[in-house]
Amino acid sequence: MRTTCIFAFFAFLIFSCQTNENQSENNANDLPSYRLETVDSVTVKGILARLFLFQAADEDHIIFRDATTSDVYVFDREGNSVDKWDKTGDVPGAFSMSAGNFAQDKAGNLVILDIMNGIKIFKKDGEILQNFGIYQNQWSLGGAFSLFKSYQVIQKNGKEYLLYSLDVIEESPDDYGPEYLQERENLILTDLETEETKTFLPFPEGSQFLNGNVFLFNDFRPVFKYDEKSQLLYLMFQNEPILYTYDWAGAEPVLLEKTDLNLEGFVAGEGFEKGAVSFAKISDRTINPAPSIVLNLEKYGEDLLITYKPSPADKGDIAQLASGEASKELKAKLSEETKKRTVVLTQKGEIVPVSLPEMNPYDFAVIGEDIWWMKKHTGEEEQEDFTVYRGRLVEE
């Protein structure tokens, strides 16, 4: 066992060196690109829902939810309805539209985190198995609907945990200043059997969030992925183009590598002087109307899949947008310029663009080797039939 761990550690060091070397060579090399190729699709029919979204899938079932209600739809892999249930109102396990997407535990149960109502675990027929209260009352809500995972069910030492973060995971500071960020712990871990919860993982040394300024909450929300096989935790903060890789074989994650990523069009913020922004403010369009933001970080095979939004290249355009003086044409130009981009970060440290098919604006979900998405609905008529696609990345 010890020999295996030592070998894995040195293998990671070799990978890290290759990552740094290849990152600097990205501009000089002609890299291939990837596209998302459809493997198959499933259509479900006769749906009456305002915002019908794919949630999760396993070998037997596909789970959907009306994101504006608590209606949950269960289908088999052929698209036949198996069950439908909801948790609206004053019932055990009730959750709201502020809840994230369903994750699944090792038994296939559905786990959901509602930042207003806590953690819930359901059987696929809607039976409530666990009903935890929220760890910390929230001061703010932020983020649009998305299929991107904001939390993850993980297994460590034979136990299952929910790994997640919240906009605010501690009491309000008397005075919001850089001292708050020096002490902040950014991740939360909840034992899914006992509800025992702890916070951990402060900002690593060298992070821009320790530069003596304060930041909007949207800037330092973490996106992360824990890989159980390698016991590595990959983490980025949303306005910092740096990948932090931790060894989490022990009780606490240990930082192994800090990798600067050359994401085209990404502009990291420097923060604001103390007092310029208030505590728990998610964003401020009058200060920065088009910030760069890392939206998602996923392990895909042996590589990492990163989705982000760049900032406009012209600072004058940003100023016009912030002041409210941007014309309709300029807004359209900036909307195109700041569209979401997805790239693959390879083991060699190459950043390779990904060509995605047209899909709904709620993005995609990675489950195992597959990427799931739904097409954007372009018709004006009310939609009752929905198709979810399953695909894999192929090199062009």
Rank of each mutant, 00 (worst) to 15 (best):
Y73G: 11
S146M: 04
D83R: 07
K149D: 15
N80T: 10
I119A: 06
G100Q: 06
K87V: 12
I119W: 01
K120I: 12
Y73R: 01
D66M: 06
D58Q: 07
R65M: 12
D125V: 12
N117D: 14
K106V: 07
Y161G: 09
V168P: 00
E59W: 00
I169C: 05
I115R: 06
A107S: 13
K149W: 01
P92M: 09
V111M: 05
S165P: 01
S70P: 02
I128S: 08
I63Y: 03
D66R: 09
K149G: 11
A99E: 09
S150Y: 04
S96A: 10
D60E: 14
I112N: 04
G79S: 10
Q104C: 05
F148R: 09
D76P: 03
V168Y: 00
I128C: 11
Q155D: 14
V74A: 03
T88D: 08
Y73S: 06
A99N: 07
Q104S: 14
D105L: 07
N117E: 12
Q152C: 10
Q152F: 03
V91G: 07
G126A: 11
I63K: 02
V74W: 01
G126H: 05
D76T: 10
K123T: 14
F145M: 08
L162S: 07
A99Y: 05
A107N: 11
I128R: 01
N109M: 04
W85M: 07
V168C: 10
E127I: 13
W85G: 08
G126F: 02
I134Y: 02
K120D: 11
E160T: 14
A67S: 13
L110V: 07
I121N: 01
N137K: 15
K124D: 03
S81T: 13
Q104R: 10
Y135L: 06
K123D: 11
I154C: 06
M97K: 13
D76M: 05
A99G: 10
I169L: 06
I112K: 02
W139Y: 15
L110H: 03
E160Y: 05
G108E: 10
G118A: 14
D66W: 05
W139N: 14
V111T: 10
V72D: 06
D66C: 09
W85H: 05
T68H: 04
I63F: 05
D114Q: 08
D76N: 15
P92W: 01
I128A: 09
A57L: 04
I154Y: 03
T69I: 04
G93T: 14
T68A: 08
V111D: 06
L147D: 13
A57V: 15
N101T: 15
D105E: 06
I154P: 01
S146E: 04
A107G: 02
S81N: 03
F132G: 09
D90L: 15
K149E: 15
V153Y: 02
Q155W: 00
F95M: 09
D167N: 11
A94G: 14
F75W: 02
S70V: 12
A57R: 09
L129N: 04
K123W: 01
S81Q: 08
F75I: 08
L113Y: 13
Y164D: 06
I63W: 01
N137P: 02
I62R: 00
E160S: 14
Q155F: 00
F64P: 04
G126V: 13
Q130P: 00
V72G: 04
I134Q: 09
A57E: 12
G133C: 04
A67V: 08
S70K: 04
